[in-house]
Structure formats: C-alpha cells, structure tokens
C-alpha cells in the first residue's frame, strides 16, 4: 500500500512514453497506406491475405502497445484474449467448413 506516488514502480502500471506511442502511431498510419497501395496491385487471391495480414499486424500493435497488454502483469488478460480469438476462429472456420462445402448452392 505504501509508496503510491511513484506509480512507475508500483505493481501493474505501465506509463507509455510519448516517443514509443508516436512510433506505433506512425507505423499504424504507414500500414494503412500500404494496405491501400497493395489493394491496387494484382496479387490474385493473395490480395485478401495481404490486406488481412496487415490488418492483423496493426491490431496486434494496438493490443500490445496501446492497450498495454505487453506490459501487463495480469496473466488472465492474455488468457481472455487468446480464448476470444480461439472462439472467433471456431465460429469462422466451422461456419466456412459448412457453407463452403455445400453442394446445393
């Protein structure tokens, strides 16, 4: 309970530095530009893969740095994130396994 004034050294708080926040912000903006540019290059089916890979990279940066997950000491937070992604993957993959293989359509 003591020594709360020095928040930087307390248990779970991470204070993001302005420099690293601006770096992440710039990377996110550049990635948005790359996404738009890549959409105009013919990569066949890979266009979608590239677009979603960049989106996932951006989302990962936001979760790790802007949402402070990289610095959290709470182990349940990564567990919640991984389980959310697992069930999302289950929803999408099993639905597509069904709808993608229906002969009647």
């Amino acid at each position: 309970m003591a020594n709360h004034s020095t928040t930087e050294h307390s248990t779970s708080e991470h204070i993001s530095s302005i420099g690293s926040s601006i770096t992440i912000w710039l990377i996110l903006l550049v990635c948005t530009g790359i996404t738009v540019g890549a959409a105009f290059i013919d990569l066949g089916p890979l266009n979608t893969v590239v677009a979603l890979s960049i989106a996932t990279f951006k989302a990962t940066l936001v979760v790790l740095f802007f949402m402070h997950v990289k610095y959290t000491h709470e182990r349940l937070t990564p567990l919640v994130i991984v389980s959310a992604l697992f069930f999302l993957g289950l929803l999408l993959s099993l639905s597509m396994a069904d709808f993608g293989t229906r002969g009647w359509h």
Binding site: V36, L43, A51, L52, A55, A59, M67
Partner: peptide, 24 residues
C-alpha cells in the same frame, strides 16, 4: 480507453474488407 482501442481494431478490419475488394 480499452473500449476505444477495441472499436479502432474493428475498423482496422472493416476498412480492407469493405473498401478494398479487388481494386486492382
């Protein structure tokens, strides 16, 4: 703040899925 970042992440996926199908 976590909520706001989450809403940002949803848009990060919506943007390529809605605006950028087959633009080439």
């Amino acid at each position: 703040g976590l909520y706001w970042h989450f809403v940002d992440i949803i848009w990060i996926y919506l943007f390529p899925l809605i605006y950028l199908i087959d633009r080439h």
